[in-house]
């Protein structure tokens, strides 16, 4: 607990400084927000247009698809807001700047990702919350306390799954140095998880469930919530997968950190 407070304190301080320093460039700050907002609204509208022309997609109707889309965006928030620096890992590894992470009495992953907070993504957060409430109303989801708790657990599990996969893919930088290709490839695959996995053919479903478990980012929890009615034990699969993937990610990161040798000076 003491350690947690210690880490949170440091994180808050760095985040506050980061936000402050970004606000110095008022125009950049403003346009960053505006740009992100426009991108999010446009991608949302494009989805709306597509889904409106197809009344049903593998047994999912319009509002269900939108709910899935909203959940997908909600899940990516923790990773995109707090762990954005993972995109720069290969750069830090290549230039040798990553060495500095070893020199602080802190967890290397924590030290690496702290000090960089992407507030811009809050626009997407607002949009996705709005979408979830709106479609949730239309779908007449009967919320109970247990359901709410399960929703939260599933959201956490999904977020951990996404974060875990991102960490694992980014960690490949410790071995292959230039992993931009891998990062982009995993992003392309991850985009598929905003659709119901049931629309894909069997091999793809197998891949998204067991190899890169993107199915657990949105499809599995939303399917449980919308299609199974009452809370069952199977709802806990997503949190379990999330914890598993995240634990694996921590292991991969640690192995990478242990074998990284830095650059010559």
């Amino acid at each position: 607990m003491k350690t947690l407070i210690y880490y949170v304190r440091i994180y808050m301080r760095l985040a506050a400084q980061d936000i402050k320093s970004r606000m110095v460039y008022k125009v950049d700050f403003f346009f960053g927000f505006l740009g992100e907002f426009v991108i999010n609204v446009l991608s949302f509208l494009s989805i709306v247009v597509i889904f409106q022309t197809i009344p049903q997609l593998a047994g999912w109707d319009y509002y269900e698809l939108l709910f899935l889309y909203g959940f997908f965006h909600l899940v990516r928030m923790p990773t995109d807001i707090f762990f954005d620096k993972l995109w720069f890992l290969q750069n830090a590894v290549r230039t040798g700047d990553f060495i500095i992470c070893y020199l602080r009495p802190l967890n290397t992953l924590f030290y690496f990702i702290s000090g960089e907070i992407r507030l811009k993504n809050i626009t997407a957060l607002v949009l996705s919350v709005f979408l979830l409430i709106y479609t949730g109303n239309k779908l007449h989801i009967s919320w109970t306390f247990l359901k709410g708790l399960c929703f939260f657990l599933m959201f956490t599990g999904s977020a951990l799954t996404l974060l875990g996969i991102r960490i694992i893919v980014a960690s490949t930088a410790f071995w292959v140095i230039n992993n931009v290709f891998l990062m982009n490839f995993h992003l392309k695959l991850y985009d598929f998880s905003r659709y119901p996995i049931s629309i894909f053919s069997k091999p793809f479903r197998f891949f998204f469930t067991y190899v890169l478990p993107f199915a657990f980012i949105a499809y599995v929890p939303v399917n449980a919530l919308l299609k199974t009615g009452d809370v069952t034990l199977s709802w806990l699969i997503t949190p379990l997968v999330g914890c598993g993937v995240f634990a694996l990610a921590c292991l991969v990161w640690t192995l990478g950190v242990r074998q990284y040798t830095g650059t010559g000076t």
């Binding site: 760095l14 980061d18 970004r22």
Partner: peptide
């Protein structure tokens, strides 16, 4: 010597 350990934008 060749690497700053302080946060560059702070």
């Amino acid at each position: 010597g060749q690497r700053s350990q302080l946060w560059w934008n702070i």
